[in-house]
């Protein structure tokens, strides 16, 4: 494999990771959605590049799905939701940016430590891809737990799923049927989340999930 194609794969995968950090740092809702769309575009480029260098045309379909679904449809839908909820200008209170970024750095270090030494017989590209993917997944999880807003939590989840796709394509591609079903399940998750966000909003006049906690039945019985 030429070093050029390696570098480009590296660059694209790395850019997904960098965008994950941007997601983690960004605290304005509409900006988060834009960054997410950008991450999806980077993902589809990365997958397309993998299709080219692995000579696996079916990965192009994966790239297409990622581009259309996550790059266009889902961000557009989320933008709509946010506008209808009137929170597109909302500034979210994030757990202090400094500690979050430091934790994220730690997670990236952890995933590199974990994946790079594993499987010496696998090519360095695959291992780096996997390391990036694991880091993106962990950062997505971290985003889910540091946010209070339901919409940004959804974005965290979607970016986690980006990491999964990255991992799967790096490891010699994944079967198309799996990719399609994952894409659809993500879409369904979006719908469910969307419905829930509106219901939450209707009921509690906020999408801050913290507000839900005081309505839980068991609390009266707390020991």
């Amino acid at each position: 494999m030429s070093s050029m194609s390696f570098d480009i794969a590296h660059l694209l995968a790395g850019s997904i990771l960098v965008l994950s950090f941007v997601l983690l740092y960004q605290d304005r809702v509409s900006a988060v959605l834009n960054v997410f769309a950008l991450q999806a575009v980077a993902l589809s480029l990365s997958v397309a590049w993998q299709a080219a260098i692995q000579n696996a045309p079916h990965l192009l379909v994966t790239a297409g799905i990622a581009l259309v679904m996550k790059g266009i449809v889902i961000p557009a839908a989320l933008h709509r939701i946010v506008r209808r909820l009137g929170i597109h200008r909302e500034v979210e209170e994030v757990l202090g940016a400094g500690p979050t970024m430091l934790t994220g750095l730690g997670l990236v270090a952890l995933s590199i430590l974990l994946v790079l030494p594993a499987g010496q017989n696998v090519s360095i590209l695959v291992r780096e891809d996997l390391a990036f993917a694991l880091a993106v997944i962990l950062l997505g999880l971290l985003m889910m737990i540091t946010r209070r807003n339901a919409v940004t939590q959804i974005v965290g989840f979607m970016s986690l799923e980006n990491g999964l796709v990255l991992a799967a394509t790096g490891a010699k591609g994944m079967p198309l049927v799996v990719e399609i079903s994952v894409a659809f399940s993500v879409l369904i998750v979006l719908i469910v989340f969307g419905v829930f966000v509106f219901r939450i909003r209707e009921r509690f006049d906020t999408v801050d999930v913290g507000a839900l906690d005081q309505f839980r039945g068991e609390q009266g019985e707390r020991l």
Binding site: L141, L142, I145, R148, L212
Partner: peptide, 14 residues
């Protein structure tokens, strides 16, 4: 652990 918030549960998993 039965009475945590959703975020705390996620944090536990994480």
């Amino acid at each position: 652990f039965q009475f945590l918030t959703i975020r705390r549960y996620l944090t536990l998993v994480f």
